[in-house]
Structures are given as C-alpha cells and as structure tokens.
Design a protein around this nucleic acid. Structure first.
Lengths: 154, 154
DNA sequence: CTACTTTCATTAGCGCTACGAACGTTTGGA
DNA sequence: TCCAAACGTTCGTAGCGCTAATGAAAGTAG
C-alpha cells in the first residue's frame, strides 16, 4: 500500500508558464551537453552565427544580435579569440569600438557546432511529428517576438 | 547611414531551444511580477495546488508532486507555515516524515494566487488564438513529459 | 571651442534557480 | 541484527540574467 504515489497534479501539468520552464530546461540541458562535449558553449554558437550571417561588427552590435549582455560578451569573445575563431581589433573609424571578425577557423568551428545544435534540436523535438515541430516553432516565435524579444539586451 | 541595424539573425530566431528559453523567460517574468505584487512566489502556488489537489503529504512527496527540490522545499514550507497557509506536524506513523496540511487560510490564498496565475497565462498567450493556445500547451506537455519530467526531483 | 550627453569595452557584483553533498534520524527488508 | 533506503535539514555551488560603475571616445548644442 503505497502512501501517495501521486506525481504532478493535473492543474500544474496544464500551466503554460510551467510547461515552458520545463521544456526550456530540458532543451538547455540537451544543447549544453552536446556543446560541452566539444568544450563549446551556447553563447559561442550564437556569436559565430551572428558574425557569419550579418558580418563583422562591434561587441555592442553583437550583443544586440544575440541577446547576450555586453558585459558577458567580453568573456565569450575572449574565449573565441583564444581559440582563434575571431579576431578582435580596434576600429580605426571609431576608437571606442572593437571590430570582431570571423576567421576561417571560426567558420569551421561554426559548421561543427551547427551540426551539434541541429542534432540537439532533433532530439528535443523527437516526440513530435514534423508538422507539430514546425507549428511549435512558429508559435514560440510569435510569443517571444510579442513579449519584447529579450528587449534591449544592452 | 546606420552602421549595422541588424537585430537577431534568422538562424537564431528559428532554433527551438532558443525560442523556448526566451518564451520561458518572458513567462516567468509575467508570473513572478503578478505574484510578487502579493508577496507570493511561484513555488508557493505549486505547493498549495499539490496539497489542494492530492491532499496532505510529506515534504518529500510534495517535492515529487511539484518538482521542487526537497532542499528548497524547506524554506517554501517555512514561509507558507509563517503565513498559516499550511500546518507542518510530525507524522505519528513515520517519525521521519512531516505531515503537511492545507489550512482554510491556505485554501483562500490558493484561490487568490490561482486567479493571478491564470491572468498571467492569459497575458502570456494573448498573441495566440485560443486554438493555438491549446495546441501550444499540448505540444509543450508532450515535450516535458517525454524528456523525463523534471525527473526525480529528489 | 566648450560643455553635456551618449556609446563603447570592461570589471565587478547581485539575486535567483536548479542542483549536489553531507548529516543525523528513522524505517523497512534481508 | 545489519544494511540500505528514505526523510528533513543545512550548507554550498555553478550558471544565467542583469545592474552599476568606470574611463575612453564620439556626437551634439550652445
């Protein structure tokens, strides 16, 4: 006679904010595990994508593109620079700025991380049909866009 | 001539794990703001629901029902007990356990918090049609259930 | 030209959340 | 009887989002 084998009340299982938190946590774990296997980090990928897709930029600009705070961006760029994935040089046109440039090494690194990320997404969405996967992605995009993205992400 | 007014690359905007993180953050903010206005916390609500829906239980059992770690549960129950929302008494049948009981005060408190939570969900899902809201909730439920709920949440 | 405001990179720090370690107590099973 | 497990509790940790403050440089107004 088990005393109370009652895991997770129905009410809690139907609250969107709770479901979002749980799903986000699982998703983050999947991504982080994959990336950690290659000594990489979530943020590295975001920065590399931002550089590959929209070209060289200042740190502040990268901060806006990725949603990473520019105070955290410093360390991320340090690591990417140590791995020679980017170059960080003062902007001659505006001496406040650094110009961050993607190196060939960085481009290769991005390719590798991209497959890891893609794999993780696949595993994350595995229990859904392809149509459901697309629908979920669309709905989430609407939500995040509506609720002022990360906002300024200064 | 703005240098690079390019917010958020398309690739980043279509990665489910990133969308989930963003949506979860927005959702959590909405909920936390509402609850904070009444000095309440996310976790208080979860515990009260778990008690109301499945009856009195030990702290470990509540931990399983809510996904809150049992090390964190202690403080939550302290606060709920201070507010006289619950009673915490040693279990005569098993002296390791405490029996946590919902008080009438706690039941009223739950009613209040429930409306706050419901309001927050409404605001969160506002940009979606009712059908989309249901679909999103269903899809998220599938995901969280598949990826070993919170898991043990010991 | 001067004075004010803004932007930038960088450092340091805070609060919250999920999570693990350890401990003493108690219980149940071999 | 001995061992393993569960319980409540305390303490500590790591990561993330975010703020504040600083010195340098640029833009802007008077």
């Amino acid at each position: 006679m088990s005393p109370t084998p009652n895991p997770t009340p129905a009410r809690l299982r139907t609250i969107p904010s709770r479901l979002l938190a749980g799903a986000a946590l699982a998703a983050d774990r999947l991504v982080s595990e994959r990336l950690a296997a290659e000594g990489a980090h979530k943020w590295h990928f975001a920065v590399l994508v931002a550089l590959a897709e929209a070209g060289a930029a200042s740190q502040a600009e990268l901060s806006r593109r990725t949603g990473i705070y520019r105070s955290d961006m410093v360390a991320v760029l340090n690591e990417l620079a140590d791995a020679e994935c980017i170059r960080r040089e003062p902007d001659p046109a505006d001496r406040r700025r650094n110009v961050i440039t993607l190196t060939p090494t960085g481009r290769h690194r991005l390719e590798r991380l991209d497959t890891l990320i893609t794999d993780a997404q696949r595993e994350l969405l595995a229990p859904l049909t392809p149509d459901q996967q697309d629908e979920l992605t669309r709905l989430l995009a609407v939500l995040t866009e509506h609720h002022h993205p990360p906002h300024g992400a200064q």
